[in-house]
Amino acid sequence: MSHTETHERSLLGFWIYLMTDLLSFGVLFATYAVLSPNTAGGPNAKELFSLPFVLIETLILLTSSFTVGLAMLAVFKQAKQQALIWFGVTFLLGLTFLGMELYEFNNLIAEGASWERSAFLSSFFTLVGTHGLHISVGLLWMAVSMVMIWKRGLTPFINSKLTRLALFWHFLDIVWIFIFTIVYLLSYV
């Protein structure tokens, strides 16, 4: 099998993984939609969330989805330096996003609004936490990839891996659009 064929096949395989991952997010969204009114006398979503903070988080993740695209354009042009810079920018944006999410979680727990407080908060932490876990894995993957680019250059093998990493990162931003809309925006409607 030629290299291009192997690449195409693993890309399709990865795409199918993303689709099944989307199904698990779908179940968590359904759980959140059902349980979110059940606050057990505790704080509700509107009292807990700050929309301007989440808007900034959203725009940071969106920008990182754009910069990972720019990184891939550099990869296709075989521009190693440029690819490293754009992956570096994406990594920092992703790290900022994760930091903001952990800061929010930390504040909620300090206010006594942890996952133990109500069904609403359990489902919130499960949904948003699962997304954050994916972001953490993506960041780890990106860090390893940057070391590989730096050490070995943009070989066809590494480029194939990078295509899947970029796909994963775009996918996480798409999931976040729905967390932003359903969890945060809808709580203020």
């Binding site: 808007l55 969106l62 920008t63 754009f66 695209g69 932003f180």
Partner: peptide
């Protein structure tokens, strides 16, 4: 590049529009 840039600009506009409406 144009496709990424257009996607980025449209996504920002859609996000901010939803935010302002709410």
């Amino acid at each position: 590049f144009k496709s990424y840039l257009l996607g980025f600009i449209l996504s920002i506009l859609l996000t901010v529009a939803a935010y302002l409406l709410v």
